[in-house]
Amino acid sequence: MQTSVASSATSTNPTHHVELTTDPISLAALVDFVRSDEAGAIATFSGTTRNSFIVSGVRKSVTELSYEAYAPMAIAQFHTILNEAQTTHFPTVIKLAVAHRTGVVPVGQESVIIAASSPGRKDAQNATAWILDELKRRVPIWKKEHYGDGSVATWKENGECSWLAGGPH
């Protein structure tokens, strides 16, 4: 089983926090990280695991979800995404934080949390949405669904995955 991995502070931006862990992840901890006296807004996104999915038009109950990560590359990709968010897309952002849980995530709990602060609300709100989109496109993390009807567990594929749009070749 993968152990808890937090990003190293070396050669990373001190206004960015990246966390990949098998432990439960905390919205409060991410909000506290992005909190700043210069910020008039803190925006957050929490992705939670739900108890059913539609598979080929049929609703199937999900008993368990598990996530696997290529941890060093996932952490590097997260840092790249946060840097791009701040330098290219949302320049007024003050601090950014992202946490993704791996291993088994019980139904109803958070698998991902994103937090952003900015002087006005727009950049913080837009940054959380953009970071989630980029996470789904290119961070090497995989979700496996286990079903209540006993059918074979499946690895999911994000429709946003960057190389599925144009094909891998």
């Binding site: 993704h100 991902v112 789904k136 090497p140 993390i141 995989w142 690895w155 994000n158 190389w163």
Partner: peptide
């Protein structure tokens, strides 16, 4: 994918087989 440089596998490299991602 990022930058378009052509690469080959060298001694000491770490290669990973990456199915479509499904984080989030």
């Amino acid at each position: 994918l990022d930058g378009g440089r052509m690469v080959e596998v060298k001694p000491g490299d770490e290669v990973a087989v990456i199915p479509p991602v499904s984080g989030g």
